[in-house]
Nucleic acid binder design. Structure first.
Length: 467
RNA sequence: GUGGUUGUAGCUCAGUUGGUUAGAGCACCAGAUUGUGAUUCUGGGGGUCGUGGGUUCGAGACCCAUCUUCCACCCCA
């Protein structure tokens, strides 16, 4: 056995106790919000049939799917001719399974397989890791958690409105105050394409427009021309980048621009409906302004999302003034289950990227202290007798719901105190011969250094108050 | 997938045109202190310099390959 230094694959991470505790804090807020809106949990396998995943994310996406080699002699059934035909052909021969790339497609697969047992509309949430063979960089990992909430089996735009509500609630509860929920509509994008005389080319137009922030108006112009959009059309498009006014005014301006296009009409009607729902829900996303003065929900005609299955509203969420890509995104897909032979089931959903939210909260120092504590009380012992004496006390503390532990051996005080310090345990109970005689134990507040001699019942009452 | 970048002690990093036994701070362990952590003082352990080849009398340093890190594209949570 050669001793090699162990390592983990590129783009993956271990999560130590301190990190997991903080991640769980995020998960619990997301989970309880989803449940509050009537979504129920679902879990699916880490691996899917490769055929379930391929073709759902576009060519780019297909390349980022982690494939799993067949078990056993995976080359057994291949011939030299197969190899000559190239990797695309060969993959089908040597790999039948793959790690899931997102949670939406497995969800659609689940819906189709269980269509007879499911009561529609079906609302589910799912919190599991996904894998992408992307090249890692900041906020981009090869294994990361997504927290999806989707509803299928209804066209109602109330679902879109509720998605906005949930995003707003989760981020607010996490302590974020400056974020923007961008919304747009595939119909609006198609309508724009038609209105500028490039009907059906919205795909190319979207990819280019999406980079507006990064490469600017001239960069986008160049890219559009390269993609074969006419100069005339580009000139007609450019005024849209700088539309001004609040959301309502934007919608009105778009009405005059897209009024005659069927797709544009559809998009505008949907967006208006979403606003109307949010209005009647008195949504904070409309009423609460960011420090910049704009409301959190913002119509953005330059928002274009890559996943090819979106057909209606699309969302993306950006935390302002931090160096991080979008932390959440989603949209409506009319025909995702159609790919699995079940047409006519419309769905809408979105996803939180927990790993990115974690990085943002860390950068903004927004994790509350309560999300960082583990044990509340450490009982320090001096010898075998004090250990025996401490056991009932320990049980009493735990029965009272106070997370506590007894240092498992009579180590030097310095060591035991250091343990409490390291673990960020706020209180230490000292149990030794003096205490056993008086029946009172010493309670030390590790933050202030103050010590009191108290009866255990008083200590429990005091600590429960603080909790 | 394309172009760049990084790797030296547990962590953050020094290390000169290639030249004796590879350093610092922090962390860790022990003692000063036999009932008190985060401050102070003293001492100590810990590295086949990411890995594998090559050039050289001699490589942490130069060359090649490979893995890894971070960044920009592409795309995306």
């Amino acid at each position: 056995m050669s001793k090699e230094k162990p390592s983990i694959p590129k783009g993956t991470r271990d999560f130590g106790p301190a990190v997991v505790v903080k991640r769980n804090y995020i998960f619990s807020i997301i989970r309880s919000t989803f449940q509050k809106f009537g979504y129920l949990p679902l879990e699916t396998p880490a691996m899917e049939q490769l055929s379930v995943l391929t073709g759902k994310y576009g060519d780019e996406g297909d390349q980022l799917i982690f494939k799993i080699l067949n078990s056993g002699d995976y080359l057994g059934k291949t011939t030299p001719a197969d190899i000559e035909q190239g990797s695309k052909h060969l993959i089908r021969k040597i790999s039948e399974k793959a790690l899931r790339y997102d949670l939406t497609v497995p969800f659609a697969r689940f819906v189709v397989m269980n269509r007879n047992e499911i009561t529609f509309p079906f609302k589910r949430y799912q919190i599991q890791p996904v894998w992408r063979a992307d090249r890692p960089q900041k906020g981009r990992y090869r294994e990361f958690y997504q927290c999806d909430a989707d509803v299928v089996g209804t066209n109602s735009l109330l679902c879109e409105a509720e998605i906005v509500q949930m995003i707003d609630e989760v981020l607010t509860t996490l302590g974020l105050t400056d974020f923007t929920i961008k919304i747009n509509h595939r119909g609006v994008l198609a309508g724009i394409a038609e209105a500028i005389g490039e009907k059906g080319r919205e795909g190319d137009i979207c990819v280019a427009i999406d980079k507006l922030d990064k490469i600017g108006k001239e960069g986008v112009r160049k890219e559009l021309l390269e993609r074969g959009i006419s100069e005339d059309a580009v000139s007609k498009l450019e005024p849209l980048y700088t539309l001004e006014g609040n959301n309502q005014e934007l919608l009105q301006q778009l009405q005059t621009i897209l009024g005659n296009t069927e797709e544009g009409q559809r998009g505008l009607k949907d967006l208006n409906d979403v606003w109307s729902y949010l209005d009647n829900l008195s949504s904070n996303a409309l009423t609460t302004a960011n420090p910049s003065g704009n409301p959190r929900l913002q119509l953005d005609v330059t928002l274009a999302r890559g996943l090819s299955y979106y057909t209606g509203c699309i969302f993306e969420v950006k935390v302002n003034n931090v160096s991080m890509g979008s932390i959440s995104g989603g949209g409506r897909y009319d025909n995702l289950t159609g790919m699995f032979g079940l047409p006519g089931v419309s769905g809408v959903g979105f996803s939180f990227g927990v790993d990115r939210i974690y990085d943002v909260l860390e950068e903004l120092d927004l994790f509350p202290v309560s999300a960082q504590l583990s044990t509340k009380v450490l009982i320090v012992q001096f010898d075998k007798e004090s250990e025996l004496y401490a056991l009932p006390l320990l049980q009493k503390l735990r029965d009272a719901g106070i997370s506590s532990e007894l240092y498992p051996e009579a180590a030097k005080l310095k060591k035991q105190m250091g343990y409490a310090d390291q673990k960020n345990i706020p209180f230490v109970l000292l149990v030794g011969s003096e205490e056993m005689e008086s029946g009172k134990v010493k309670l030390r507040d590790m933050q202030t250094g103050e010590q009191d001699e108290l009866y255990i019942d008083d200590i429990i009452a005091q600590l429960k108050d603080i909790a």
